[in-house]
Amino acid sequence: MRTGRIARAVKLADLSRSQLQRRLADTGLSIRTGPVVSRIRSRLPAVVEGITLHYAPHPALESGEFADFDVRVDRPQGWRRWWRPQVEFRVDGEAPFAPLPGDQGFPMLEWGLNWCITSHCHQFLILHAAVVERDGHAMSLPAPPGSGKSTLCAGLIHRGWRLLSDELAVIDPATLELLPIPRPVSLKNGSIDVIRAWAPEAAFGPVVRETNKGAVAHCRPPVEAVASADRRATTAWIVLPKWIPGAEARLTALSNAQSMMRLIDNAFNYNVHGAVGFQTLADLVERSRSYEFEYASLDDAVRCLGGLPIPEHAT
């Protein structure tokens, strides 16, 4: 985690193609995403392309700077690589996951980085949630996979909301603030074309098919979101989304107690925090308004969520 000293950084987009490739192949490319620095190594063209596209606006640190995670995504060394290419994710020399098919290098990097954060950054309370912000008020969207969370998040960030994360609500228990970790937004299956149509200006990587989650494509985080990655936000709303075909956009208020239990269901490391985790989530729901949210159309959803009143204690 970053301490008081700010490491020297340039934008990744300012590196030449050969500089970027050399770092990825050799000493590692250290990228800062909010409070996390990941040193990444890879010789895979798809990973190089993915990083070039999606992390262009991110700060790239000097190779000697401290990194929280030392990550490598490359071909495993077994004889199998000659007839069925695979990719392997390593962190600090260990391979915590089974290899994936060879074309899944960039998705595996993203999933692996998520795992690194949720498994190691226990100074924060981390929820499985997208987080967006507008006018200083953050909306957390906790939900299990398949709920339409990332689609809704991608829809909102292309209509004036700031992206903090499409996957992780990172909460500082000392202040209840949410820390931005703006990274590529992961879209799956039908959502890919929905967001392409919703935001034609959005930059997409290639669609990778037949992953464990189906077809996956990543959408580059908005430049402004990366530029404001040091600006924390305070939660005003907790919205539990559920995409239901044909449903009218509908918000249903949740009691604080019900909301808290739902947050716990979607927490990665609540148990690690013990009583502090309990107090943190209880304080969080107390200062927010909580809703269940059904939606089908992004237009309706954005309109509906944009009209939410700001809770008194969040002003």
Binding site: S255, N256, N271, F278, A282
Partner: peptide, 23 residues
């Protein structure tokens, strides 16, 4: 235990079992 009461509902954290219960 720690308890947080909101209206007629509450959540209780039991540090012995690290469990949280909705009342």
């Amino acid at each position: 235990t720690l308890i947080r009461v909101w209206g007629h509902e509450a959540v209780v954290y039991d540090s012995r079992s690290s469990s949280t219960h909705l009342l």
